[in-house]
Design a protein around this nucleic acid. Structure first.
Lengths: 339, 339
DNA sequence: TTGTACGCGTTATCAC
DNA sequence: GTGATAACGCGTACAA
């Protein structure tokens, strides 16, 4: 149970340390039988290469760093967990750090990771990312909040929202409100664009039924409380003018909005449909269960890890990899009642 | 921006590498002024010691490992985030791994962490922990799910539950139902004990008002759906026999139970009080807001890290450090209506 | 108090 | 195809 190094293995096998090293690293120029014999001895001794020594000599640490704004956000938690799985499948481990959406902290974290010699960084940038200088030469993949100038991977928020709006349109809704995310957030803007796209398109196709005139949009932070006030704002008008459906930019907003509707005595989904975005586990725990547009978090995480490990070619700059969203049907959307 | 090592610093300061090393490690035998000068140069060059080399030569990696069953569980997510903060304050980073409550995976993770030379492991054991062999010589602190034979840190579940029951008693409840956690879970049993303690004590003090006779206990997993069926079970009896309050062992159970009550047309808190346990953010997002017993997660995490870094003496075996819980008042508890 | 020299476990570069 | 050896960057006896 003590220090069994590569030397012990070599001595016991009657070969040199170099050979053992080559075997460990799947170097081709080693006889099959020799490889077999040494491998047996390795297993026998229970020898494991020392990661510290490895990362000192070579350039590989088999470590990837993850920097996210907030781990208590269920979306990021699942992202990290999925990434850990994906990394483990390749013999990698992860170092997790939280930036709290603070650019200075974020820069510091990245510096730490660099000195740790991580083989790559998966970054969900803080919102004031523009002040951020990233070290060159270290693979970095930006996830979810895309940044111009870096390889990015994310869900296709824009089309995801279109999907959601179309779902509501098909149910017969014509006055569809939208709770937008904070204006400085990249995904928030993508989602807003998706909404505007879909509404615009519906207007053009105007199949007799007219779409509502004034845009029914409220901007809010992604959290619960903001969703609630935005809901209050959107619902504070005469019944024949207020939206019959509200599409929120996050599940938490949607749940806050449900609460607002509940406080106003508006039954869901009878008098108001509500649609969320994200697909966090929480969505299925509300009463009634929230219908939501689900992001393929696991796919995103797996792709990000694959890119960092060079298992997959990195996306071009300014041409991110996007994953399609899908609708997770709950009980908060239904056809509108006639006025 | 290239490789600035300890040698460059030494050369530029006109001292030897040994001196620089001693300065870095706060070795006492160095002149104050020399220390000051070299420190300045270090900062000037932006020199950072190479962690890999450090952990190879010395025994310290400034890395601590965290193994938890499931990161998407909000409780564990907050635990990890708090630990990361605490570790960062001491110049440490964390490697996070998920065991999925699978003993074999867990053992493998721990082995990986050992070979990474982490300076300590914070472990929330999987439920079949009894099959677990932990490496000696490596500081390990068991958190939340206490294990006999290891240093443990957790919330005082037992007294926390007592607190909750007393809250309900003070409101006037006499038929208090309890949704217990899974029987094989250590915290679940602690919580059940707390409930039984409090009820027993209330019986003895029997101040005229009689406590309900038969125990109103339902065992369930910690999740939402299980809480819902347990709630259904407890509420499926005549009004004057069913509990006027239900205390759940987790917030998710409590929320499931709220849904059960809602489906049965039982208003909360008018006809039924509900009390949760954990204090996850989700608790304040329900309608109405859940009253719950909050665990001091940050304190737990900070203490665990402190113990691992020897900043604080480890708790005796079988004599864990316990942190007091507190009641987080929401809107789901109130005095019972007369029958 | 400070400098020197060596070793930690591995991989890469040569010879063989 | 395989063996010997330098080098990676730092900590630490030991010598001065």
């Amino acid at each position: 149970m003590s220090k069994v190094g590569i030397r012990e293995v070599a001595k016991l096998a009657g070969v040199s340390t170099g050979t053992v090293s080559r075997i460990l690293n799947d170097h081709p120029s080693v006889t099959k039988e020799l490889r077999a014999r040494v491998t047996a001895i390795i297993k026998d001794l229970g020898y494991t290469p020392d990661p510290s020594a490895r990362s000192m000599r070579g350039k590989v640490s088999r470590l990837i760093g993850i920097v996210i704004p907030d781990l208590t956000n269920p979306f990021f938690a699942e992202l990290v967990q999925s990434a850990e799985q994906a990394a483990a499948n390749h013999g990698y481990n992860i170092i997790v750090m939280t930036s709290f959406d603070h650019a200075a902290k974020e820069a510091d974290r990245i510096k730490q990771l660099t000195s740790r010699k991580v083989d790559g960084i998966m970054l969900v940038p803080s919102n004031d990312f523009h002040t951020l200088k990233l070290p060159k030469g270290l693979p970095i993949v930006v996830v979810d909040r895309l940044m111009p100038g870096y390889s990015g991977i994310a869900a296709d928020h824009r089309n995801g929202v279109r999907l959601g709006v179309e779902h509501l349109l098909q149910l017969g809704h014509r006055r569809i409100g939208f709770i937008s995310g904070p204006g400085h957030s990249v995904p928030a803007n993508d989602r807003l664009r998706g909404y505007l796209d879909a509404i615009e398109q519906a207007r053009e196709q105007a199949d007799g039924t007219r779409m509502a005139g004034p845009p029914l949009i409220a901007e809010a932070a992604f959290d619960y409380e903001s969703g609630r006030s935005a809901g209050n704002y959107l619902l504070a008008r005469a019944r024949n003018e207020r939206p019959t459906a509200i599409f929120a930019s996050s599940d938490q907003q949607a749940i806050g909005c449900m609460r607002a509707a509940h406080d106003l005595g508006i039954p869901i989904p009878a008098a108001l449909s509500i649609l969320g975005f994200d697909g966090i586990p929480l969505a299925s725990m509300t009463t009634p269960r929230l219908t939501t547009v689900k992001q393929p978090i696991q796919d995103i995480a797996a792709a990000a890890v694959a890119v960092l490990l060079n298992k997959q070619t990195a996306p071009e700059l300014d041409n991110p990899i996007l994953f399609a969203c899908e609708i997770l049907k709950g009980e908060t959307t239904a056809s509108p009642q006639p006025d």
